[in-house]
Amino acid sequence: MSAASRLGTEPNRVTRAVILGVVGGIFAIPIIAMIQFTFRDGLAGGYTVTHWTGLIGEDAARTYRILFQAIGNSVVLAIVTVAIVLLILLPTMILVHLQFPKLKRVLEFICIVPITVPAIVLVVGLAPVYAIVVRLFGSGAWTLAFAYGITVLPYAYRAIQSNLDAVPVVILSEAARSLGANWPTVLRLVLLPNLRRGVLAAAFIAVAVVLGEFTIASILNRTNLQTALLQVSQSDPYVAAIFALLALALVFGLLLLIGRLGAPRNRRTE
């Protein structure tokens, strides 16, 4: 029995079950409703699997071309966004943590700001910037990743920072250097293995945010999964619901994966 439960601060089993039931219900009911909707047989009532089987039919690729293209775009966007997080944010955070600790607050402020700016406001500001981006990099959907790199900052920052705070990064890197490791080796053999959980969480949260983003893509006239879903839902709401479900399942799977891969080796071997 933990100290917390002896003090009566930990809810008992019934309370826990009720809380789990209510919160679980809030999440589960819309999802169950969506699943049920994808099996409905039009307004006539009854159930059918034709909406699902239609997706693997021969015509499907042509009919839902925009959707498959959008999925491709979103996957590319997710990869580029994750690359931005791993190649720019992560090294910056480690550098600030080790060498410029006075800049921590500044970095935190910069990274948290995007969460306080509504997407619509962000897009208004980004529109003229994207006029230049288009000139430099063309109008490919992947360029949206620059904007997504900003929108995922607060989430990615939090995930990495909590891991950085939990690991004695400074002392570990000093120990490694005293043993003859140069900086790239310190990063590869000592820091990254201990920051794995935070880095994976940041990457997967970035993927989840990118797969769920609509406003920026819509206003900047790019096609991603969400804009395509809206477009398809106007002609075939069932297919839109099915794809939304699949996207949800993918994100859910990714989050479960964090738990698996992120568990440190020294705990898993116990």
Partner: peptide, 20 residues
């Protein structure tokens, strides 16, 4: 000369074993 090339051995005040 950088630390990693000085050929020293060091033991720190706080525990510094690599946890992984």
């Amino acid at each position: 000369v950088p630390t990693n090339k000085r050929d020293i051995g060091m033991v720190f005040q706080s525990y510094s074993l690599f946890p992984h």
